[in-house]
Structures are given as structure tokens and as C-alpha cells.
Computed example of a mutant assay.
Amino acid sequence: MRKSFLALTGLCLMLAGCDVFSAKPANMAMKPEAAEDPYTKKTIPSDFIESNLNVVAVGDSLTAGVGDADNNGGYVGDVSDLLQLEEEVSSVDVSNFGVRGHKTNDLLKVLGKRDVIEKLREADIILMTIGGNDIMKVTRNHIMDLQLEPYREEQPRFEKRFKKILNTIRSANPDAVIVYTGLYNPFKFMLPELSEIDTIVEEWNQASNRMIMADGNAIFVPTEDLFATRSYGKLLYVDEFHPSETGYSLIADRVYTSLSEQNE
């Protein structure tokens, strides 16, 4: 299952550069009109919303909003804006602890900090993205011979850390809604030869989804299908790794819709 030299060279360049781009591209895609979004927004019931809503976001660069040329905080900022539009909401207080490059082991360290724990205790909604950099670490370590086995060997360790993350959050706050945004394959169109990434993303998403569902008050929000199409324009930033502001807006719409459906 060895890949072509060109595919591997391309992936090497992308992995080396996915965290270094910061300039705003000259021609960013416009956000899609509301009519183009297949996920219709629904009003969150008043018995769910509190007048003052506390949102805490934890995770990696997607939580940090890397790639959002609008500087609105990525999907976290977009979700906050949607919640603020609710008539029952007087204010939305967002505490964002997302850090670029963080993996599950890094997030566990963040969750052990006193200020983070205090914010988690006050949270009504906890947003989380994590796991993409865990996959990329395996990819970097086996760049010259990409096979499924190393990812599958790492998956049980990922699951153990992911479960510990959920338990840590629940220890701080047993009542807040946890919203975990799933993984996607950023190399789908740039390097279609690396189909193994699709398989691994699907398997890791299934594992995290099982743990999220077992929580009883948590939501798994899939994104893999969003980034498997180009119908909404350019969904990735210039680094071809992180979402663009368009990609983030689609994630936010889906998160908001999932919150609404959770409380119907």
C-alpha cells in the first residue's frame, strides 16, 4: 500500500506548512447564502436557554479559529453569534481555550488548569474539537510508508485519552451540553491517492461518537461530509488544512442545529 513519490512529497509539504500560513488570501470565497445551507436553523426552546449563556470552548486549532479570515473566532464565534440572536438570550459569554497544534494529551493538561476548571464549572455549553493532530502525528512519523496499521495501533490510545477528557469535563460539570465536532480529511482533493486517511478518519470518528453517545448529554457533530464536497466554494484556508471562514460557518450552522434538535 505504498504511495507514489509525488503524493508523498505533496503530503510532506502540506504537513510541514499546515501551521505556518497566516496571510489573508486575495480572493476568499463568499459565505453561502442561507438558502444553500441544507441544515435549516431551528429556534432553541426557551426552556433550554438561560438569559446569560456561558459557552466554553476547548481543543485544537479549529477551536482557536485558525484560518478564519474574518477574525470572528472560527466556528466558536459563529455559534456564539447564532445563540445571541435568540430572543431569550441577553448575553453569551465565551471562554475559548483552543490552542493551535494541540493533541489529546495536550488538552488533558489544559483541562487540569485551575482557570479552565472554574470556567467549565460555569458552562452551559462546552464546545470541543480534538484528534486531528493525533492523526497528523502518526502521518508524520510514517510519511514514507503510509499504511493503516500505525493508525489502528494508535487508535486505542487515542480512545483512552478521549474518554479521560470526557470524564475530566464531567467531573467539573455534570450538566453542561458537550458538543464534539468530528474529524474530516483535509487532503481529500489535494492528495486523493491517500485514501487511507478517509478510512482512518471514519474509524476514529466512529470511536469518538460511541463515547459521546454514551455520555447521555453530549452531541457528536459530523463534518467529514461537509469537506467531501466543493459545492459551497472554497471550504479550506490557504494552507489547505484548516477551514476557511466559509467552512467554519457551515460547521457552526450544524453545531447550532444539533443543539436545537437535542432540546426539541
Rank of each mutant, 00 (worst) to 15 (best):
I251T: 05
A207H: 07
A228E: 12
T229L: 05
G216T: 06
E202I: 05
S195W: 00
N173A: 03
R230W: 14
S208E: 15
T246F: 02
F187W: 11
S171H: 14
E240C: 14
N209S: 00
E193G: 02
P222L: 04
D175R: 15
E224F: 11
I200S: 05
I219R: 01
T181P: 10
A172C: 12
P222N: 06
F227M: 06
W204F: 09
I197V: 13
R254T: 00
N173T: 02
Y237E: 02
P186Y: 01
D215C: 14
S231W: 11
V177S: 12
N185V: 03
V238M: 10
S195H: 02
A172D: 15
D253M: 04
Y232K: 10
S231F: 06
A176Q: 05
N185T: 05
D198Y: 07
L194F: 08
V255G: 08
M190L: 10
E193F: 00
D225Q: 13
N217R: 06
M211S: 03
R254L: 13
F241L: 07
F227K: 09
A228S: 13
I212C: 00
S208P: 06
L236Q: 05
I178K: 02
V255I: 15
D253C: 08
I169V: 07
N185F: 11
T199A: 04
V255H: 11
A207W: 11
M211G: 01
E202N: 05
L235I: 09
R170N: 12
A252L: 04
Q206D: 14
N205F: 11
P186E: 12
P186A: 09
T246Y: 04
G247P: 15
D215V: 11
V177L: 15
R210H: 07
V177C: 10
P186Q: 01
N185Q: 09
R210Y: 08
P192F: 01
L235K: 14
S244V: 13
S208L: 11
A214C: 01
G247N: 14
D198Q: 01
R210V: 12
E193P: 00
T246L: 05
T229W: 09
E202G: 05
S249V: 06
R230Q: 15
T199L: 13
L235W: 03
F189D: 09
I251M: 13
P222E: 01
S208N: 05
S195I: 02
M211T: 00
A228P: 06
D225R: 11
T181G: 14
S171T: 13
F241M: 07
P192K: 03
F227Y: 02
